[in-house]
Simulated assay, not measured.
Amino acid sequence: MSLMLLIEQVLNGLQLGVMLFLMASGLTLVFGVMGLINLAHGSLYMVGAFAAAWVAAATGSFLLALAAALAAAAAAGAIVEVVVIRRLYARDHLDQVLATFALILVFSEGTRWIFGSFPLYLNVPDYLAGPVTLPGGIEYPLYRLSLIGVGGLIACALYLLIARTRLGVQIRAGEADREMIAALGVDISKLYTVVFALGAALAGLAGALVGTIQSVQVGMGEPVLILAFVVIVIGGIGSIKGAFVGALLVGLTDTLGAFLLPQLFGAFMDVSSAAAVGSALASMLIYLLMAAVLFLRPRGLFGDTA
């Protein structure tokens, strides 16, 4: 096994981790502040990807595509919160699950009606295309490296927003005691709309950024949503720091497991069987990691912190 190839897989795991963080951070904000289980979060990821692909095809600008993804996902999130979600806060979690599952169907069929059933494609911009040479002579795609950097910057910005701004104080207070901040004059309905739109925008941005790596198609958000739920369970519900650490752990575990396990079993069986067995076990690793974390810390790694 080549050390350079291993380092490339570590970078791939970091890239997957920061993209999962964009999904999981919005999900953990919504659940932590509102106590809402939002299964439609993956649909907002899909909305961002389709908006980016459509704008990029129409204008040829990748930056405009990212702006469109943010705007479209945030707008969709705000509309959904006002029209549907606002009626679910006082309902139990089963009602929330059923209503947001229905939203998945609405978004899927609506997207198929607008864009058709065929996938769209979002190209990497020319200024981010090609490889870059890292120390040690490792060549790695510039775009994927940029995703790691962008994800890290967004994580820092989100932490500063939550920890150092007035809106962040209101969000943390709303998580701790929503009745008290409402009594102090904070418009709790407006706060919930802002939080939901912010979470939707982060999901839409993740969809747009990943849309250059895979095709943009209906239903693309659901597999990522499952991983995002694993992330927030590992990191701790309501914790941005937990979402970041959990996302990196899941990204690295998933990527390195898929890379190392087939090679490990290759010493005992033929290549095709080793690949099949290794891939099957690799898909289980993140759930074993989640089980181990919950056994040691039932509230997650940072479940008691912001």
Rank of each mutant, 00 (worst) to 15 (best):
G137V: 06
V97S: 11
L103V: 07
S117E: 06
I162E: 00
G110H: 13
R112C: 06
G137Q: 06
Q170T: 09
L122N: 06
L105H: 15
L142W: 00
T100K: 06
I138A: 03
T100V: 06
V83N: 12
R166M: 05
I85V: 14
V150A: 03
D92A: 12
A176R: 08
G151Q: 08
A155I: 07
G110L: 13
I162M: 01
F118H: 13
N123R: 15
G152M: 06
R178K: 14
V97T: 12
Y121P: 02
G110S: 12
P119D: 05
R87W: 15
D126L: 05
Y143N: 01
E175S: 04
Y143K: 02
G110M: 13
P119C: 08
A99M: 10
W113K: 07
F115H: 12
V84G: 13
Y143Q: 01
L94R: 13
A157E: 08
A74E: 13
Y127N: 06
E139D: 14
L160C: 07
I138T: 08
D177G: 03
S117F: 02
V83W: 12
V80W: 06
D177L: 02
A163E: 12
V83P: 14
I148E: 00
Y127T: 05
S108W: 14
L167T: 06
S117Y: 03
L105K: 15
L167D: 06
M180S: 11
A176E: 10
V80C: 10
G152R: 01
F115I: 11
L128Y: 04
N123K: 14
A75Y: 10
F107R: 09
R178V: 14
V80T: 13
I104S: 02
G116K: 14
V124E: 03
G168F: 03
P119L: 07
R172Q: 05
